[in-house]
Design a protein around this nucleic acid. Sequence first.
DNA 1: CGGCATCCGGGAAGATACTG
DNA 2: CAGTATCTTCCCGGATGCCG
Lengths: 232, 232
Amino acid sequence: MKSEKITNEGESRRRRYEDACAAAHGLDLVGDRWALLVMRELMLGPKRFGDIRASLPGISANVLTQRLEDLEAGGVLTRRKLAPPAAVQVYELTPWGYQAEPILQALGRWAARSPHHDPTLPISANSFLLSLRTMLDPSRAKDLDVRVGFRLGEETFLGRLRGGALDIAPHTIEDADVTFAAAPAILAAAIYGGQPIEALEAAGVLRVEGDRSLATRFVTLFPLPPRVEPPV
Amino acid sequence: MKSEKITNEGESRRRRYEDACAAAHGLDLVGDRWALLVMRELMLGPKRFGDIRASLPGISANVLTQRLEDLEAGGVLTRRKLAPPAAVQVYELTPWGYQAEPILQALGRWAARSPHHDPTLPISANSFLLSLRTMLDPSRAKDLDVRVGFRLGEETFLGRLRGGALDIAPHTIEDADVTFAAAPAILAAAIYGGQPIEALEAAGVLRVEGDRSLATRFVTLFPLPPRVEPPV
DNA sequence: CGGCATCCGGGAAGATACTG
DNA sequence: CAGTATCTTCCCGGATGCCG
């Protein structure tokens, strides 16, 4: 039996930048592969291990376990057991963890201009919804106060657009002013790709309920920044 | 001889997240270890290989070579040869590369609140100066229009504070209104650690030239956000 | 089934030595 | 000084299997 785990006694000797720069310390915390994407998947609310994994095609179970441990040790998230009726364990960002959203937004805004960005790859519900928060143009939205429902696969989310800001959370959608039902990639095509709503409905891949004129306005609130000219 | 480098025919098979999310693509570009810190070192102007390396204690030459190649392939930076008198090669961010600064700022602002952040580690001139741009409180600075010089080791930088924003670039400092000469860590102690300027001068680790009352005001313009409560 | 440990192969990171 | 070559170490990714 050499199973003496000298590895870590609660304190990790993980590889670190020895740098006082706060950004470098941020990379110590969330710079590992997959770490920020795990946080992205928790950004709209707690999730279970399997749901995170399903949202991140390509991550393996042991890596996800590792990232969750590291992020918990860093104070970014906590594991919590739901009330006995459904006593499942979920992972939830700490209040400070939720405040990491501007990192994802800065990264997303910048990379959206990349010459190599490929928007045709698969996209998760969370990353699509977060992209709306990121790309919303407050000046175009500032005089709107509406509730927008999203039915993305099994899950429903309710967005509250008010004062030029957009809050989104998992929620029922019966009292939304307008509701979009489609795969995330389809909605992205409508909002970022300029695909007309009617065409997508005619193709049977999108359904709009409620205020249709609001729907056509809503999809224009998220302008994409110009691409950088292709590589020399 | 199996030295057939099948590796890459100009196209890289680098490990990528297959994800349409722009943030995920951003991680494809700058998510590798050291990548963002290399960009940080170039954020205030072009640098040579050796200078980047000297600013990043712990990076090894081959990793730096690799990161520079990858970032160049991603359109983030270019290599450029200076005019014949000093025909040295330097690395310089592209205009789009410079626009990545908000990523560093979001990361830094967030991680500055970490319970595990250790400000006593070594700090480079660039990361200190960038931290000023990050942490400047525009409301405290909005009615100031001054030139601030920094002598950090061999290099000098000139900061222009105006309209609540701070521009910084390598520059001579003879026409600054006030000048700080000290190691970056010392200046950080004065600005973020609340060390009195007089005490640091008495200790012989800091020298202030020019408008001294401006100096005492300047160091109050960069409030630190509150730390998160230590781990449970 | 969800969560986590273990083993293994490949590849990136780290350290050192070497070359133009 | 600016990288390149080489070797070691360790992380990532996939598979399997244990256990509640």
